[in-house]
Design a protein around this nucleic acid. Structure first.
Lengths: 68, 68
DNA sequence: AAAAAAAGTATAGCACACTTTACTTTAAAT
DNA sequence: ATTTAAAGTAAAGTGTGCTATACTTTTTTT
């Protein structure tokens, strides 16, 4: 599953550190999410979507056949 | 974070086993989600929401101050 | 009332989301 | 060109989502 975090963060002119602080996670977490190392938890997904004023489904691009 | 899984599952007259099969998880996972033992992963949340024809935000009731 | 189906509890184990720390590389500012 | 800020990599550790197996309790059916 891909996401639009990096794209939207840059459009908002926010650094990884600033986003991390706003979401109460570490910068590592933001890097890993942006670079597709792992998927966000449900709560983090929701907080991130709220930060950008979107729904989870708008921020995260779900494909069919995602195996958990 | 609470969710409406049990309520919607019963309304649809589906057993935990049937829902588990439809989502490709075990019955234990459904029981644990319904009884609030843990939160769904993002992908499972999405598949479950799709099963009920809802968005994630409609199926899962996010509160403020959820600490990851 | 007895049998069968559905729901629940318990525990051990694995995978991965997230943290922490430390170091390197790339981009921006002076 | 040098410095500084931002982004990236690496690796070990913790907590939890999910599986698997086995057993018990509740609900439904006959």
């Amino acid at each position: 599953m891909k996401n639009r975090i990096q794209e939207l963060r840059k459009a908002k002119k926010v650094t990884q550190q600033e986003l991390a602080d706003a979401l109460n996670v570490t910068r590592q977490t933001i890097i890993s999410l942006e670079n597709g190392r792992y998927n966000a938890s449900l709560i983090l997904a929701h907080k991130t979507a709220q930060f950008f004023g979107l729904t989870i489904e708008e921020l995260f691009l779900f494909e069919d056949n995602e195996n958990l």
